[in-house]
Design a binder for these strands. Structure first.
Lengths: 347, 347
DNA sequence: TTGTAAGCGTTATCAA
DNA sequence: TTGATAACGCTTACAA
């Protein structure tokens, strides 16, 4: 840690009375040297505890054996949403098979560009990264492979998405069908700065889906009172937002969250404050994470294959790194899951 | 991605008619060159989209700006336990402030040593890593800083632990106090291979705690029927284990899991199969994750400060990397949280 | 089979 | 303020 000097390939070569080449071969491709030499080298390097310097190796091989997961929100905030756990499980399932490690690259000290630049990875899976965002250009400049999840990069970059608009449409249709007209939507907080304007597309697709359901309903649009709030995707934020929304007069009879974990927070607030779900307020979400089926009442939501999205993105990325031809745009279907947190409006 | 050749510091130097040194200064410490030169260099490198090669930089600076999180189980399995989300949030909270990225280092292709060797990091936070395990020696050989969570490394390595024995003691005392005598314990699955023998200390500490409560109870030990099963820390495994345990004759009246997520899976199994918790079987866990207070009935458990453990470990690691003197062994207290999933045995 | 030597792309040293 | 030049530690043609 302190004094003990780091052992290098030179030390081993010297001690073994061979060249650096021999040592390198012994470590990487023993077939290229005699068994005897190899054994001697391995014995010595083992005794001295020689570990090849990873950075030096990467500098020449140009292979890191790790992929980056690029997140628009800082890691602490990101991990508050179990959505990310499922993404990570999906990515992980591929990495375990393919032999890659995962590096989480996200804003720190109010800056993400630096970390995108410096990450020692072979490629990135990026969540919610649009082409207007700075990291997008950095990845281009780095000339590195990447795959986008939940983004609409209409460029030469592979994307993995869910059919957000249809999912949103279906759940709003469900809510309207239950007679709700006073509805609060809990949307996302804009993450990375845009060069141009605000147009987080996943959010817009969902809003479009919600609106479509309202428009198609046949009723006069003015019959509805729809409010959109921005909310961090976390249990605590859902809880707090519920307090804000539900203590006002003229409170909504239904809350549609864009993330299940937010909806779970809302349900907890209701429980703690004697508000009956769904009798007094219907609550629903988006994702279908584990927590949604655990909570009581179980959450009505739009299921999207989160694990599969992570898995698909990672597989695409690694195939791309390996120089394979890959599909450019993958869209997964969603499914409306009706459980017990939504119900017909009481008159 | 394909042909477009990577732009290096040489390209910029040539184009700007300056030395590599000047370019390096412009990127890293503009105060060392004239404003005019700097601007010219920055303009050119911006136009060409120059990003310094991270590996090359690290090779000379010997600083990576990332810390490794070393997990004994593969990432997919590890992420099934929300425990890890909380650890990551804690580590993340420090990294956001200190400007570090996180790399997850875990077994892949049935091998972890390779990844521990090759990880480009400034240090590690290791979970459940005992000194008898191979990665421990690799970290030593790498001469790299590391901090262990949930391990008893009685060496010169800093550790962060909970008082597992007391926590386990308290919950077993609670269960015994409710009259239970036929009890199943769901322990961990051994992860990394040991050089010597199996002695995952966190597991042993907890078992010791459970046993202590039984011994102190004053009753004849033969009055008890205690079974210990090994179980992966996941919802699904809990669910499946519940099926195995609860469909046997002479089934236990109480199940003590060493992880909350396992207990949550058990409760779900019971719900799905008409087994009343806690009337027919009491269920409790360890950790106190978010899911434990969401599930119905809410889970009786031992709270340990998971987030704080991650935070503390990361802070210790980064302080150590920065050359500060740090505390060697941190132990957090636990707290028995009695909720509704445990109850007095029905006669 | 083994060794020499040339990169790899930075940063750091030290004159100029 | 600048710019050669020497590390940094490894891999890999190419020679021997």
């Amino acid at each position: 840690l302190k004094d003990k000097k780091k052992i290098t390939i030179n030390d081993i070569a010297k001690k073994a009375g061979v060249s650096k080449t021999a040592v390198s071969f012994a470590m990487n491709d023993p077939s290229k040297i005699s068994k005897k030499t190899c054994e001697k080298i391995m014995r010595i390097s083992s005794n001295l505890g020689y570990i090849p310097n990873p950075a030096a190796r990467i500098l020449t091989t140009k292979k890191t054996g790790t992929i980056g997961l690029l997140l628009p929100q800082n890691i602490e905030v990101s991990m508050k949403n179990p959505f990310l756990s499922h993404i990570l499980q999906g990515i992980g399932s591929v990495c375990v098979d393919e032999g890659y490690s995962i590096m989480i690259v996200s804003p720190a000290k109010g800056n993400i560009n630096k970390y995108v630049r410096n990450a020692v990875v072979d490629g990135f899976v990026a969540i919610g990264l649009e082409q207007y965002m700075e990291p997008f250009q950095i990845l281009k400049d780095r000339n590195i492979s990447f795959v986008c999840i939940d983004a609409a990069s209409p460029s030469d970059i592979p994307t993995v998405n869910s059919d957000d608009e249809t999912g949103a449409y279906n759940i709003m249709k469900h809510i309207i069908g239950l007679g709700h007209k006073n509805i609060s939507i809990l949307s996302f907080i804009p993450a990375l700065q845009f060069k141009e304007k605000e147009l987080s597309l996943i959010k817009n697709f969902r809003l479009a889906g919600y609106n479509k359901a309202i428009d198609e309903n046949g009723m006069n649009k003015t019959a509805f009172s729809i409010e959109v709030h921005e909310c961090e995707c976390s249990y605590e934020s859902g809880y707090r937002q519920a307090e804000k929304i539900l203590t006002k007069t003229g409170r909504p009879t239904a809350i549609i969250a864009m993330a299940d974990i937010t909806a779970v927070g809302i349900i907890s607030y209701c429980k703690d404050n004697g508000i009956k779900v769904p009798d007094q307020v219907s609550v629903c979400g988006f994702d279908d994470i584990l927590e949604s089926s655990i909570v009581t009442p179980a959450l009505t939501t739009v299921r999207q294959p989160v694990y599969e999205k992570g898995k698909k993105a990672a597989q695409l990325l690694i195939d791309q790194i390996h120089g394979k031809k890959i599909a450019m745009h993958t869209v997964f279907n969603t499914e409306l899951i009706v459980r017990n947190s939504t119900g017909r409006i009481k008159t």
